[in-house]
Amino acid sequence: MAINWFKYSSPASFYLLAGKMVPVFVFISVILLVVGLYVGFFVAPTDFQQGEAYRIIFIHVPAAWMSMFLYVVMAFWAGIGLAFNTRLSSMFATAIAPTGAMFTFIALWTGALWGKPMWGTWWVWDARLTSELILFFLYIGFMSLQAAIDDPRRADKAGAIIALVGVINIPIIYFSVQWWNTLHQGASVSLNQAPAMATTMLTGMLIMVLASWMYSIAVILKRTRVIILERESHTAWVAELHKKGAI
């Protein structure tokens, strides 16, 4: 495996590499998604406490994990872009944000759907759900800030600062919310007390997590490609692609 990684850190060559990689990841993610959903909805046994409603965790849990992972990954790339002035890493960060926000939204939505049969209400101020809501605000803040800035270099750097400030704050926010939650505990139901899981449940969930990863990589690569084209539209190599009819 003698790949020259530095070669791919230039937007032009990364554009071509990503173009080849996207279909591969789309393919893998579709397969995993179909298998994961099949295992989750048909193979896994019915939970004796929660009935069929528990099956939402096959979407809820992977989405919640991804939403948190992606914020950290986003802050990492944004930070690299800020520290080393590498354009591609900043573009990565920008491309990750909408996907992360989407997973946060899915986690909230499915959390509400789960809550209705479990607690008889769409929303409880559970520590995890509340933290997820705040994470959603952080994503929205990052994206709004970048959208409000016209100059892409300033947008990259400003976004990086707010993402890093956010990533330092997430643990603090999480522990504050948890503390607040234990102080004001009305109904003592919590999402972290997952029932003992059957092996098939666990398998289904892990497959879904993998599917989410593959999906995220595919979408993020695709979005990075679009951002590269947008930013490099005045350069010679994009003009050449255009001439060849490749865009």
Partner: peptide
Amino acid sequence: ALTLGLRGGGVLVSLLVLPLYIP
């Protein structure tokens, strides 16, 4: 500092800092 000179900076700043005020 981040929203300096931006259109709609006043509303934007609330989106950025209010979540950080939560603790």
